[in-house]
Design a protein around this nucleic acid. Structure first.
Length: 111
RNA sequence: UGAGUAAGUCAGAUGAUCGCAUGCUUUUGCAUGAGGAAAGUCCGAGCUUCACAGGGCACGGGUGCUGGGUAAUACCCAGUGGGGGCAACCCUAAGGAUAGUGCAACAGAAAUAAACCGCCUGUUUCCAGGUAAGGAUGGAAAGGUGAGGUAAGAGCUCACCAGCAACUAGGUGACUAGUUGGCUCUGUAAACCCCACCCGAAGCAAGACCAAGUAGGGACUUUAAACAAGCGGCUGCCCGUCGCUGUCCCGUAGGUAGGUUGCUGGAGUCUAUUGGUAACAAUAGACCUAGAAAGAUGAUCGUCUAAUACAGAACUCGGCUUAUAGGUUUGCUCAUAUA
RNA sequence: GCUUCCGUAGCUCAGUAGGAUAGAGCAACGCCCUCCUAAGGCGUGUGUCGGGGGUUCGAUUCCUCUCGGGAGCA
């Protein structure tokens, strides 16, 4: 994934958390806000509550992979953050993918 | 066969498709890509910056049987003493209590100092004296056991044992063995302390370079010189020392966001030989093995399999400690059975 | 990544140059008062001193390993 398509500093993250909208389901929370650019930027976050570094890495990779395979139909011009909830620490790839598809549909960012 | 003990070792492999990081090619691919603990941050170093004008004093910090290894250590190896286990083997913060100080609650007559009961003698009620064998308390009660001895007793005397000191022998040494002697003054130093040895501070968010924005910044020595005072730095304190508390000049200079770098070839890994009981060292040959920066190893479908645990590099090494499924190798000990 | 501090009753805290019954306030519970409740009064219980090991006759206190929580450093 190109660096320019990632959210990379703390100010951007704070902006999305403070001013953006949020929706959630069993495994994930999604924050999003318009960014006045002609492409989307995305960030992934896993808190210490999930478990140790191995578990956090795995969950983050699963979310990334799901986003990579399902972001082709999105509207451009948004900053998006996916935050893993505690129950995601044992989820499989398919459960995460289902969760992401569900969130994207509900956010109405699909074309 | 069972039980145990010690030392290791592996930490899934492989094919296809999609995808990530770095490097090289260049637009298409190729190569490489987490651990035995990467963890805790408990020690020791490298490296970097600060201080380099140091000296003295400690109520500063650390280590603590001996010898060796190492860049160094609180680590490792080999031994000594002590403790545990039938044994293989394991554990051990193990200097000094006769340098001094402190503490030892409760119990107990008494806690570093002795007469409550008892025993004996004199008086034979009271009382005075002798006595540490016995009772009772305690973690600890004046070396232990036995015999002699005595008014009753006591290292008072003797034998053995424990401890202490001196000498002799062996060992580099811790120490061991023997002889002799006097007859023997609790415990605690992970309480203060004494002795011996060692120690500047901070840490890659160290530091170096480039540099938007914003406006300030630098040089010099005197009238604030001398004396004195204040603030800050040099681990604590004292002495000492350095900088600032003025003037002048310039539109540069410093530097935040951000970027680049530090950043991986090193006390390196493997093999062989030699020296050494060993830790380890030397020599020769071969090899190059992550370097990200919202932070790279994943997803799907197969095959084999016992393959599931603990767990993710963030400057780099050497140790220690802690977590860890399952498989597997070797040595040794004990018990039982058979030959 | 580095540095540093703290874990004592349900909650907020004392205590600690080692001495054995570990305290205080609030809360909780019981009784009194009241027709009932609150307030008030009287009384009661409450602790593996975060966990394991060690030193010591004796550890909340000293040493060590470990678990959890907080703060600071750009």
């Amino acid at each position: 994934m190109n660096k320019i398509l990632k959210l990379r500093n703390n100010r951007d993250f704070s902006k999305v958390y403070d001013k953006g909208k949020s929706i959630a389901n069993k495994y994930l929370v999604m924050f999003y806000i318009e960014n006045e650019l002609d492409y989307n930027r995305v960030g992934f976050s896993t808190t210490k509550k999930l478990g140790n570094a191995v578990i956090r890495n795995r969950v983050k990779r699963l979310i990334k992979e799901s986003y990579r395979l399902n972001n082709d139909k999105l509207i451009n011009g948004y900053d998006i953050i996916f935050l893993a909830r505690v129950r995601a620490n044992n989820a499989s790839y398919k459960e995460i993918e289902k969760s992401i598809i569900n969130l994207l549909k509900r956010s109405k960012l699909n074309k």
